[in-house]
Design a protein around this nucleic acid. Structure first.
Lengths: 333, 333
DNA sequence: CTGAAAGCGCTTACAG
DNA sequence: CTGAAAGCGCTTACAG
């Protein structure tokens, strides 16, 4: 039903090769030839069949973004910017949600089939870097977030340790002495979680404050509901604290609600800090202090590195740190 | 580097056709033959090249989801569920963001090339149904949200008029008499906006309350920041109101902040209602009353209808209404 | 700068 | 139930 290359060639009276040349904007085509072909293209309304092109070139012009879940605002915001950067390079992005577990994470790398995407940007939570390295084969891949070395893969992250220290010190400087840490733990601890936790503990130690295990508030899951439940339980168990470092903004938002329900004032009684600076952090009541990664650097570097791999770069894994800043709002000042 | 169909055929000592049959789980293959081929597949680690399959079948096993922006929580949550439903049917979804404007919306339908996706689920904001019908050609397409008739296309939505009426009446029942409406307007009004506005006005009329244009608070844009700015400006201009129906939850969250800054109490002085029931509505302070569409019905019907079209259904456009409920929380009770 | 031809890796009537 | 062959619509060495 739609015109193909051959139809254009016939109408313009040239070979398919020539039509292909003008379509792909191959430079060495005479202007008059180009114009003649273009006219044929226009009258036929020709557009190349991407699938055929892909089969011929081996390039799909698509990459996958594999993140735990799109309905987590941080990942949604990430997807938004990555998808925009991709569009500028004439790429499309396929979304893979991996929250289903380790198998879903594996699928994101291996795929069920070949030739689907040219590469993937992947934020792992369960898989180790070793396992990822084995699975990837020669798939261009860049990792987001904390990953334990040894690391042969490209990845970009913020220094979670440093940020957690800074945030904890901020709480200390505003006079808090019993600072708790709220975070998701299942059987295991994600790398990101671990680094943030260690940063928090180091800050306490450096200031000779108690590093007590009872100050660790474990959440059953990610998200506001689990954060709320965890903090509510901690309060009911009689835990006293005047500062709270949260794993991320969503859990912090849950915590804020738990505190409000318990009539504990923020920031007077407890100073609260989140992580990610999702849109809501600013609109929470009280507005939420948080750690903000330089998102455009994060996303920009990840996409750049992925394209370098796609273009054939085959050097050792690169490890990039992206700057962050601590945004102080009502919840901690 | 990777095995292909022919390699498997050679190793198993059968024709490519037979291998293809077992890969595609064609039923009429003898068990022993199937097993022999499967063994060859396993030892070679064969996986079909999807691009080649696509070219041969004309099916891409992908569809596009075209929404204004992924960083709007409502659309992120929609993308999450649609992507999950797609995965179950062995489809992948490509995200297209159309907030760039009418041209971006057109591109989502026409695409820059053929053979990219089997269909698209599209929430238009600028394009009229007439324009969409013209552009679509024979592309399987289902529309989300309010669309003005005449309508030859499949679409699923909630009854915005009825919901707006109900929400406004709820405010009236709790004793509010000067009820304002906050919404985004650029030069034009989207269909969704218009329907909600008319529903709001009808409820006021039915209860003999003032339907004054000054009670319409125009926002410059979507999102919390614009909602905040608009309400702040309205307050500064001396607008008095004791109820506020907001176009969506994000603008309501901005409104909540504007009211808080102006020391206007919610719900005592002003009752506020949002729309969409994004996760954050429940965690806002005060928590936000809102309209909740039956999301799984919405998404489920949209995906079902799209697949029916992809399978070849060619009947007239179907028009489906999905139920909604009004969730009352602190902001209005 | 342009043509004729092979090839990308599948699927699928058409025969048997 | 299985084989040999054509075809999906491009790109790209290879010649000229």
């Amino acid at each position: 039903v739609t015109a193909k290359l051959e139809d254009v060639a016939r109408l313009a009276g040239v070979s398919k090769r020539t039509v292909s040349n003008v379509v792909r904007e191959y430079p060495h085509v005479s202007p008059k030839m180009r114009e003649r072909v273009q006219r044929a293209i226009d009258t036929l309304g020709y557009a190349p069949n991407l699938t055929a092109r892909r089969l011929a070139t081996g390039r799909t012009n698509m990459f996958a973004l594999a993140v735990p879940a799109l309905d987590a605002p941080y990942f949604a915001e990430l997807a938004e910017s990555i998808s925009e950067l991709a569009t500028r390079r004439d790429y499309r992005v396929i979304i893979e949600q991996t929250s289903a577990g380790a198998e879903a994470e594996r699928q994101a790398i291996v795929g069920r089939e070949r030739g689907l995407v040219d590469g993937v940007i992947f934020q792992p939570t369960l898989l180790t870097s070793l396992e990822i390295s084995k699975l990837r084969g020669d798939l261009p891949l860049v990792l987001l977030g904390e990953v334990v070395p040894p690391l042969a893969l490209d990845h970009v992250m913020v220094d979670n340790f440093a940020a957690a220290m800074r945030v904890t010190e901020h709480l200390i400087e505003t006079g808090r002495t019993r600072i708790a840490f709220l975070g998701h733990e299942r059987a295991y601890r994600s790398n990101t979680f671990s680094r943030r936790l260690v940063g928090y503990q180091s800050a306490l130690q450096a200031h000779r404050l108690p590093v007590s295990p009872e100050l660790l508030i474990p959440a059953r899951d990610y998200g506001a509901a689990a954060g709320d439940a965890a903090v509510t339980a901690a309060i009911e168990h009689g835990l006293h604290f005047d500062g709270l470092v949260c794993y991320d903004d969503m859990s912090a938002i849950g915590a804020l609600r738990a505190l409000r329900r318990a009539k504990i004032r923020v920031p007077e009684d407890v100073g609260v800090i989140g992580w990610d600076d999702i849109v809501f952090a600013e609109y929470a009541a009280p507005s939420l202090s948080t750690v903000r990664a330089d998102r455009s650097a994060l996303v920009g570097r990840a996409v750049d590195m992925l394209f370098e791999r796609i273009e054939g770069y085959d050097g050792p894994g690169r490890h990039e740190l992206v700057p962050f800043e601590v945004t102080i709002r009502e919840s901690s000042s």
